[in-house]
Nucleic acid binder design. Structure first.
Length: 361
DNA sequence: CATACGTGGAA
DNA sequence: TTTCCAAGTAT
């Protein structure tokens, strides 16, 4: 037995958390959990996993669902391309006869949304294939154990981890070894304050022995961020005695692909007389009153690579801003997926307004 | 290979 | 308040 895997597996056996996806070996469910957990904390992912498998209990359910319904379940989780990829891959698997869930690393990796890590995770956990699942946790653990001097997320560090793990996975329990390393990274060998006293690998860890555990892994460079200014035109109106709002779907090539928003104007600077003049120009579209920026609701929303400055402006736009706008009854907003800032505005300002304003009763 | 892609909880 | 960052992938 290996000097790493023996203490690791023993520790995992009695220290692992009781997580919903650990109660199954169903590859479909393992797959769903792995996609949800990409760049996502376990705490945040659990409720989404529960909701997802309740809505789509089998691959057939997912394959036969509409993309809109998949996106709706994903609403609020972020990285929405994951939902698209999951749905596309489910349809592909389900419609390729004879129906069989891909069961090897190589087959899995061909699917949209499944890269090195996820292919190895599913192959090892659901099919016992001895392949290394290397995520951020695993890289942090090995980075400390061997004092590796490559920055986090660098291809070099990933390659190094792959070389370290290859001889460990051949004997038995590749799925448990992968999960044990991830669990160790998530609960003990944490980024900020590793709890080395509880670590099954402390005798083997070079960083701990030299007291340098906090110096590893080396930090990845900060991503550059760009700043954007969004003006959302909020228009509550009556259609057939029913309170409605205009919404439009976001397209490809930008954030929030496939989600819905209020008609929006993006400017290069915070709203000023120039941008308001631009909005005024929309008078031809039915805007009969100049929007008052002072009354706008302002929200700052930060993404990994962007800082969004959002203003929500009430308008009396009588026609859609573009051809693709939909006049949606307020009672139907729960059928569409919105980005977090839109959803927050909807629930904080629009829903209460409808309930309190008698003109909409 | 560097960069874009969300969100929310902890420090 | 700001910063960090979490079970990565696609391009």
């Amino acid at each position: 037995m290996n000097s790493f895997t023996t203490p690791l597996l023993k520790w995992f056996q009695h220290s692992k958390r009781d997580l919903p996806w650990r109660q199954t070996t169903n590859p479909y469910l393992i797959w769903v959990s792995e996609i949800i957990l990409q760049q996502t904390r376990v705490d945040q992912g659990i409720s989404y996993y529960e909701k997802f498998i309740k809505t789509f209990p089998t691959l057939a359910h997912l394959a036969n669902a509409s993309f809109n319904d998949v996106l709706l379940v994903w609403q609020g989780l972020g990285y929405y391309r994951r939902a698209q990829n999951l749905h596309n891959s489910a349809k592909l698997i389900f419609n390729t006869l004879p129906f069989r869930f891909p069961s090897t690393y190589v087959e899995l990796k061909k699917l949209d949304g499944i890269g090195d890590y996820t292919a190895a995770a599913i192959a090892s956990i659901a099919f016992q294939e001895p392949v290394a699942a290397i995520d951020g946790n695993v890289m942090r653990v090995w980075s400390r154990v061997f004092c590796l001097s490559h920055p986090m997320n660098s291809p070099q560090l990933k390659k190094k981890c792959s070389e370290i793990m290859e001889p460990l996975l051949g004997e038995a329990h590749p799925g448990d070894i992968n999960q044990a390393l991830m669990e160790l990274g998530a609960t003990v060998c944490k980024p900020g304050d590793p709890m080395c006293d509880q670590c099954p690998l402390k005798q083997l860890c070079k960083a701990h022995q030299s007291g340098n555990q906090r110096s590893y892994p080396l930090k990845a460079p900060k991503p550059k961020t760009r700043t954007r200014f969004f003006l959302f035109l909020v228009n509550l109106h009556l259609r057939d005695q029913t309170p409605c709002i205009w919404i439009e779907q976001r397209g490809a090539g930008d954030i929030w692909q496939g989600l819905y928003q209020f008609p929006m104007i993006e400017t290069n600077a915070p709203p000023d007389s120039e941008s308001l003049a631009h909005i005024e120009h929309l008078t031809s579209m039915g805007l009969t009153e100049k929007p008052d920026i002072q009354k706008a609701v302002y929200v700052k929303h930060k993404l990994t690579h962007q800082t969004l400055h959002c203003w929500f402006i009430n308008t009396n736009l009588e026609k859609p801003l573009t051809e693709s706008c939909i006049s949606l009854p307020m009672s139907e907003t729960h059928r569409f997926a919105f980005p977090r800032p839109i959803l927050n505005y909807l629930h904080t300002y629009l829903k209460p307004e409808i309930e309190s304003d008698c003109t909409f009763c």
